[in-house]
Design a protein around this nucleic acid. Structure first.
Lengths: 202, 202
DNA sequence: ACGATACGGATCGGTCCCGTATCGTTAATC
DNA sequence: GATTAACGATACGGGACCGATCCGTATCGT
């Protein structure tokens, strides 16, 4: 949490302790509202409090404001990235590409697109966004490096560009519905194979 | 316009005619404010009126509300897609990929990302979005088909998937700043060449 | 000159939200 | 049982915005 009065070595705090259920309920309510279509700035503390069955004061007791709460709430969305098996480079890439935009928390799929515009406005939110996707990028980077070491992939490819190549098509389709004619199900395999083989006649 | 009292066969409307300058000023103010970082729902009629040097009533006289105004304003952003030269398939693709997210109207680059979340919420805005990018997709589709016909590209590629392959990386980088380590300048060439050649050792 | 209408500007009531304050109640410790 | 602080609920003043309406003025066609 950002500014909760968490005292690691409990020096005894008198009075009624803060409700852990309230903490959870507030975070969950925030994510639920976002997932239901509310945009970040349309989200109100009052709506969150009502949804969480909590008084507004209970929220302000824990966070300084909407931004601090949002930052904490979004952090919960990180989820666990898919773990590649490590056998076939192609299979690992298909797995990673297929996992793009698919988080353990189904709400994340709805929320992430809304983050996009905020990312270019707030430095904090940009950092948050990067901290979420960075580990996933690292996973793919390792698979590509492995492919190069094993001699499956060309040694002269630009790994960063290749990651964008694999990620981009999946992301614009899942997040923007870029092309209604594309099939999201088969797209990961198609993308990976196309990138592997190239499209030029040879 | 959405609900202007436009009478095609001018039967002469009495009274003072509407100012064309006001029309333009309102649209321009809307786009300017969006480009300056305002999000769609943070945009207020009052701010637009103030910026345009126009009374609020002047806006309400022309549009039913913010949504109608926005729809009209965003339609102005379409701009003219880049025209491929038609000589080299590779060069044409580099040109088209490089043009992604780069519109004649520099404000469009700032505004388009903000559209992303709205696209999944409003059917109208989804249609608008598709109507903007659809002609550009068509342009790339034609270049790819030409490449196949000329025997430069493999005949068995999925053209739609290939378009996503070329567009995705550029779009996530320009719109989301997906990977800070990528160079936007060289990315078009890198993407096109990588897609053309593939990354597999052969 | 006249009616009609649009103009920029100002004001109004209503709604929503923020952040704070204050209720009576509840749950822990002493 | 007394103390203490968090609880849900509610009210507050302040602010932003909406949509409507009204000024007095400007600009048309007649």
């Amino acid at each position: 949490m950002s500014d909760m009065t968490s005292t690691p070595d409990a020096p005894r705090s008198p009075g009624r302790p803060r409700s852990i259920r309230a903490d959870e309920a507030i975070i969950e309510a925030t994510l639920d509202l976002l997932a239901e279509g509310s945009t970040i700035e349309a989200l109100s503390i009052e709506a969150i409090a009502a949804r969480a069955g909590v008084g507004k004061a209970t929220i302000y007791r824990r966070w300084a404001g909407k931004d601090a709460l949002l930052l904490d709430a979004l952090r919960r969305l990180k989820g666990v990235p898919a773990q590649p098996a490590g056998h076939s480079v192609r299979d690992d890439l298909v797995l990673l590409v297929g996992a793009i935009g698919k988080n353990v928390d189904p709400r994340a799929a709805k929320i992430m697109p809304c983050l996009a515009p905020a990312v270019n406005r707030s430095s904090d939110q940009f950092q948050l966004y990067q901290s979420i996707i960075s580990p996933r990028r690292q996973l793919m980077r390792e698979v590509l490096r492995r492919g190069i070491d094993e001699g499956v992939l060309r040694a002269d490819i630009d790994v960063e560009v290749t990651m964008a190549l694999l990620t981009g098509p999946m992301l614009i389709q899942r997040v923007l519905q870029w092309n209604p004619d594309l099939d999201e199900q088969t797209l990961p395999v198609q993308v990976v194979d196309a990138v592997l083989e190239g499209i030029r006649v040879r």
